[in-house]
């Protein structure tokens, strides 16, 4: 929050709450699930009761758009829980304040920005997976796929849904992982073949799994955590980890350059790398930045961690525009739905 607004706000409220006015406030942008936010703030306030967090939450795309739009006049102090690909984008705009939080060395280096000091630090990872509705698959006489390449088999024609990478971060991490695993040419060949089987592309990343859970489609390419949740809710789902490996992205934390209260922002980022915080992330994510913290999550598929590819975030960020353009010209133009 900007100083002036803060002043007005505190002036307005000082009459009623002099204690509150003494507190520091941080505007924190996040894409973390709404239900987790209160928990995060509570845990942080146990350590720093004097800093109030004002959450601004939305989906990854919208928060990123918002941050980019506010480039010249940033409203956020801290970003806590946004895709690393987005943070790289912000970094390349010079919007992040580089800072090495206390205890960053305890994190898996994969989860820390390569810069020195790092511009962002990771929290946890979400990992791609395939949600497979056993009931519907049986009705359609499908055999479970075990790899990405399997999904190009003719038997799955019209039975697969995946997110559109142009609107979904999950969709993009799938595409970027395929290009990294299979190489540019084979990657696109694979997607050409997969496209023949895709019933449609959804706007959001969690929808394919929810659709699979609802039986609307037998196979939804989504992310593992979403699948675990739906499975826990009683959906007849199998969560398949394709054998070639799976793409992933992480949620990460960063300080916005030009924040009014750098000290408080640093305190917050310091907190986000603590063991305590990592334990907190574990309740929603099977993979967290601090090694040895993660406990298994119910219904989470086995072998997922090993299947995570060695993701090149820089590749993803720097080629994002070009990849999306290519994807759009290949698959988005063919507008007729498939059956």
């Amino acid at each position: 929050m900007k100083t002036t607004t803060k002043l007005i706000a505190s002036a307005a409220f000082s009459v009623f709450a002099t204690v509150a006015a003494a507190e520091t406030e941080l505007t924190v942008y996040t894409a973390v699930e709404a239900e987790d936010l209160a928990r995060y703030a509570e845990a942080f306030n146990e350590v720093h009761p004097d800093i109030t967090i004002n959450w601004v939450r939305d989906s990854t795309g919208i928060i990123t758009a918002k941050l980019l739009a506010e480039r010249d006049n940033p409203q956020a102090d801290v970003i806590w829980g946004l895709a690393a690909t987005s943070l790289l984008l912000l970094k390349s705009e010079g919007m992040l304040e580089a800072y090495a939080p206390e205890g960053v060395d305890k994190l898996d280096p994969k989860f820390v920005d390569a810069g020195d000091p790092p511009s962002w630090v990771g929290m946890d990872a979400w990992v791609a997976a395939v949600c497979y509705n056993t009931v519907e698959a049986e009705k359609n006489g499908l055999t479970p796929p075990t790899s990405w390449k399997d999904l190009t088999d003719a038997q799955y024609q019209g039975h697969v849904i995946m997110p559109n990478p142009n609107s979904s971060g999950t969709g993009f991490l799938d595409v970027s992982s395929w290009l990294q695993m299979f190489g540019e040419e084979d990657g696109w060949n694979f997607m050409d073949a997969l496209h023949e089987n895709i019933a449609r592309y959804t706007h959001s990343g969690s929808k394919p799994c929810k659709l699979a859970a609802a039986g609307e489609i037998p196979i939804g390419i989504s992310f593992a955590f979403r699948g675990a949740k739906s499975k826990a809710a009683g959906a007849p789902l199998e969560i398949i980890v394709p054998s070639e490996g799976v793409g992933w992205d992480m949620e990460a934390t960063a300080i916005v350059a030009g924040t009014d209260d750098l000290e408080a922002a640093q305190k917050l980022v310091d907190f986000t790398v603590t063991r305590e915080a990592n334990e907190m992330y574990n309740s929603g994510y099977a993979v967290v930045a601090m090694p040895g913290v993660a406990k298994p999550v119910e219904h989470f598929p086995e072998g997922l961690l090993d299947a995570m590819i060695d993701n090149d975030f820089e590749f993803a960020a720097n080629n994002r525009a070009a990849i999306l353009k290519e994807w759009q010209s290949r698959y988005d133009g063919k507008s007729e739905p498939k059956n």
């Binding site: 989906s59 795309g61 919208i62 990123t64 758009a65 980019l68 739009a69 559109n164 142009n166 609107s167 979904s168 706007h203 999306l324």
Partner: peptide, 11 residues
Amino acid sequence: IYKQVIGQQNF
């Protein structure tokens, strides 16, 4: 319009 703006931040 939605896809361009929200999905790709291509205002």
